[in-house]
Each structure stands twice: as C-alpha cells, then as structure tokens.
Amino acid sequence: MEEPAAAPEAARIPQQRGEQLLDCAVRYAEERHWDVLPGTWLEAVDGAERCSCADGGCPQPGAHPARPDWASQATGSATAARRMWARQPRASILLPTGRTFDAIDVPESAGFLALARMERMDVALGPVTCTPDRRMMFLVLPGGAPKVPDLVRRLGWSPAGLDLLTRGEGGYVAAPPTRVGGHGAVQWVRRPTQANRWLPDAEELISPLAYACARDARPAG
C-alpha cells in the first residue's frame, strides 16, 4: 500500500511492468526532469533475442547507446522523447549520468545489505534500480562520482579492493522497464517519488555502501 504523501506522484511514475517504454521515457523527462536517450533494443533472430546493434557478442544486448553521438542526442524534453520513442517503440531507455544525477554501482547482495543498514541509520535515499545482471544503482547528486575513490580511502579501504563503481559524466544507466537480452528487465528497488526528489550526496551513502561491499567480498577472499 502506497504512503498517502507519495500517492499522487507514485501513481504517475512507471510501475515495474506493463507500461510502454514510450510512456515511461516521457514521464522520466516530464516528471523528474531527467535527460533520456533511446538506446538499442532486442530483436528476435532465429528464435533467440539479439541486440539491434547486430553484434553477436554484445555485452549489453538491448541496453546501450545506438550511435556514437548519443550524448548530444539525449533530451530532457517530454515532447522530443515522445517523438523519438514513437519512431522506435522498442528502444531501451537510457539515462545519462553526470547531468541531473550520478550513480553508485554495487553488487546486488551488497546493495540490499547496505539498504537495510541505511534504513536503520535513517539515511535519506534517492531512487535505486536493480539490473538483471544483479547490480544495484544508487542515484546521487551530480558530481558525486569523482569524489567516491577519496571517500572510500578516508574510510580505510582501497577503492581497487571493493566492487564499488561509479557512473558520472560521460556514462549512463538503463532505466526501468528496459529489458537486457536473456536476463530480464531493470526494476526499481526504490521508485522515484515526491519524497526522494532531492537526491543525497555520495558522501551520505558511501559509508554503508563501502562497508557492505567489503563484507560481501570476504567469502571470495
């Protein structure tokens, strides 16, 4: 059951499944003022799903930019988004990072551990996605990605020793309900709502995220 305060906007934000990519892309631009970018899509070839880029070994089938000048193609206009997805309704929804947000990228197991810790600490969160390849993306204020390595060092860990990545200027994340070939769809773990419109700074999340990544890495070590 939705919280009363979040219901008006939560009703408009895309659900996990069942909505057209066009509608979702328009809503991200219109309601969150996020730049959106149409990416590649999945095509049925000989009974299997293949990326529209035609690369048989594509590492991100159906979920990467379709052209080299993708950064200049991204738009925050809902009208332009509607026009682009009307031309290719199957195109994935990509959100450029380094503009209205950056993203901290961690393994799913560490991400859920960190979420539980953040809830106990009453840490304010922004939207969070979970990808089919078991990664979680925590959206933070733009400019956060470059600060993360130094923040991790201050906490006593080596950035190279943690499976904690960042996506900032020049990067992107795939948005729900984009499907990644053969694996499933990107989903919201924490959906965009009025309550999380103001994003946290990377510094506010890095301690529980780094701790969770370090703990997650111990069995492998």
Rank of each mutant, 00 (worst) to 15 (best):
E2P: 12
P4M: 13
A5L: 12
A5R: 05
E9G: 14
A11G: 14
R12N: 04
Q15N: 10
Q16A: 12
G18D: 04
E19L: 15
L21D: 03
L22I: 10
L22C: 05
D23P: 03
V26K: 09
R27D: 10
E31H: 13
E31W: 14
E31R: 11
H33S: 12
D35I: 00
V36D: 04
L37E: 01
T40L: 00
T40E: 01
W41V: 03
L42N: 02
E43S: 03
A44R: 02
V45T: 13
D46W: 05
G47A: 11
A48K: 10
R50F: 04
G56H: 07
Q60Y: 14
P61H: 08
P61I: 07
A63T: 12
A63W: 05
A63D: 08
A66W: 00
A66T: 04
A66S: 13
R67A: 12
A71E: 15
Q73C: 15
A74C: 06
S77K: 04
S77D: 08
A80H: 08
A81D: 00
R82T: 04
M84Q: 08
W85R: 06
A91P: 00
S92F: 01
L95W: 11
P96H: 03
P96Q: 02
R99G: 11
F101V: 09
F101Q: 13
S109P: 10
A110Q: 07
A110I: 11
L113V: 03
R117Y: 00
M118Y: 06
M118I: 10
E119S: 11
R120Q: 11
D122T: 14
D122F: 14
V123M: 08
G126N: 11
P127F: 09
P127A: 13
P127H: 07
T131K: 07
T131Y: 03
R134W: 07
V140R: 03
P142T: 10
G143L: 05
G144T: 05
P146F: 14
V148P: 02
D150G: 09
L151F: 04
R154E: 14
W157D: 00
W157K: 00
S158W: 10
P159D: 12
G170H: 06
Y172S: 09
A174R: 07
A174V: 11
A175V: 03
P177M: 04
P177Q: 06
T178I: 01
R179I: 04
V180W: 02
G182Q: 05
H183Q: 12
H183K: 10
G184P: 02
A185L: 06
R191D: 11
P192L: 08
T193Y: 00
A195I: 08
N196T: 11
W198S: 15
P200Q: 10
A202F: 06
P208E: 12
L209R: 02
A210H: 09
A212S: 13
C213V: 14
A214V: 14
A214H: 15
R215Y: 13
A217S: 13
P219H: 07
P219S: 11
G221E: 15
G221K: 11
